[in-house]
Amino acid sequence: MKFKKLTTIGAALLVTLSLAACGNNNDKKSSQESATKVTATSNNESSTHKSSSKSHHKQVASHTYHAVKQRNNTILKKMIYDTNHESAGPTGNYYYVIGKAKDSGFADLKRGEYHFTSDSQGRSSTARAVLTYSEYQSSKGSRQGDPLAPPSWPSDNPEVAIHYSLTGRTYHGYLYNRSHSIGDSLLGTKSYTSQYNFTTGTRPQNVGANQGGGMRYAEETAENYWENNPGTSSTIEYETLPLYKGTETIPRGSIVNIKSSDGAINTSIAVINSVEGIKINYDTGSSNAKPITHMRPQMHHHKSSTSYGYGNRDTRHKNQSTRHSPNNQTGHSTTKQGQWTVAGAGMVFVSDSNKFYSEVTNPGNYQYMSESKAQTSGATRAARGNQYARP
């Protein structure tokens, strides 16, 4: 009797233990299922987060693109107004500062690399480069090449007189320059590798009213940074975007974005392609300017080859032993001393950057005139020379 009762109790214990075991197994299974659900939820949340992040970046990029496009359109409208009114702009020097740089397209460019583009009409468009100090250093002292004719370079480039309200001086020379988007002094020989790095720019668009405005102001912004940081490993993102009205072939101006990798420079500059007192047809390049005749008769028969504007070159003058002044007075003729051509008494060689010299190796690259006339035109004596010119 006792044995049977114990057996019954044992059986009850076995059933209880079995039920407990089943309960534990069910708890484990439930826990595993719960863990699986949590993991799946986490994965879904991660995927959703990534998708949300990509969407956010796209929205930011789209917003930035439209904001920049809207800004550029606003600047273009102002440039159209200024050029239609033959204005030098708010500074009187053919440029003004817009604000911080709004550049783009540098993700695939490394230090020392560059990219010049054209638009759907074949006009020069955005020019970009990641500039380095070594490029600037290697290009100092002399030009690194001959300017290339930009798309739709005008067939006629008259010599004109341009009076600058800012300085009260009058420039005498070519109306148009083959204007660099990224200058020789910044990019060296690379700046001559494509016609799309050049636009048809008026003389003041290129150097302003005082040789430090227009595109020169933008270039000097970068040059001054290099001068103040010699040997630096920092780089400069430099971008120029010419702006056109409709299908016109000559830009109304350009926007130059300049940003250094250390943050010292972060600026956007508008450059106006205009001329005070001269109305320009931006589709053909024709103008109402009155051409100057017999300004440089000693070079006149070579005018078609020397009308670079940005750098008047004609290597056929290299081997001449004597060149005469406009009035053909013997006392004003040049003489040769080895490789150097020496200006006559009271005469100077004026460079495309409006600096004048007494001795040069390539006289065909300069305007030859009296020193007094050079000063009246706004030129100044060069402070130092190089292997091609001496003050």
Rank of each mutant, 00 (worst) to 15 (best):
K69E: 15
K69A: 14
K69Y: 04
Q70M: 12
Q70L: 13
Q70N: 14
Q70I: 07
Q70D: 15
R71C: 07
R71P: 01
R71Q: 14
N72F: 10
N72D: 15
N73C: 04
N73A: 15
N73Y: 03
T74N: 10
T74I: 02
T74A: 11
T74V: 02
T74C: 00
I75F: 05
I75Q: 03
I75E: 09
I75L: 13
L76M: 09
L76E: 07
L76A: 02
K77C: 01
K77E: 15
K77S: 15
K77A: 15
K77R: 12
K78Q: 15
K78N: 15
K78W: 04
K78G: 11
M79I: 00
M79S: 00
I80R: 00
I80L: 08
I80W: 03
I80Y: 03
Y81C: 11
Y81V: 10
Y81L: 09
Y81P: 04
Y81T: 15
D82M: 14
D82I: 06
D82N: 12
D82F: 14
T83M: 06
T83S: 11
T83E: 12
T83K: 02
T83W: 02
N84K: 13
N84S: 15
N84L: 12
H85Y: 11
H85D: 12
H85E: 11
H85G: 00
H85N: 13
H85F: 06
E86P: 01
E86A: 13
S87N: 08
S87F: 07
S87I: 10
S87V: 10
S87C: 02
S87Q: 08
A88Q: 01
A88P: 05
A88S: 14
A88C: 00
G89F: 00
G89D: 00
P90Y: 07
P90V: 12
P90F: 09
P90K: 08
P90S: 14
T91A: 07
T91Q: 05
T91H: 03
T91E: 10
G92N: 07
G92I: 09
G92M: 07
N93D: 14
N93S: 09
N93H: 05
N93V: 06
Y94M: 05
Y94S: 03
Y94D: 01
Y94T: 01
Y94R: 05
Y95L: 08
Y95A: 04
Y95M: 04
Y95N: 03
Y95W: 02
Y95R: 04
Y96H: 14
Y96I: 08
Y96S: 05
Y96V: 07
Y96Q: 06
Y96R: 05
V97P: 03
V97Y: 01
V97Q: 09
I98Y: 08
I98E: 12
I98D: 11
I98F: 03
I98Q: 10
I98P: 03
G99E: 04
G99L: 02
G99F: 02
G99C: 06
G99R: 00
K100S: 14
K100P: 04
K100C: 01
K100W: 00
A101G: 05
A101Y: 11
A101P: 06
A101N: 10
K102M: 12
K102A: 14
K102T: 13
K102L: 11
K102I: 10
K102N: 13
D103I: 01
D103K: 05
S104M: 05
S104C: 05
S104K: 03
S104F: 13
G105T: 06
G105P: 03
G105N: 04
G105Y: 10
G105K: 00
G105Q: 04
F106P: 05
F106D: 03
F106Y: 11
F106I: 10
F106H: 04
F106M: 10
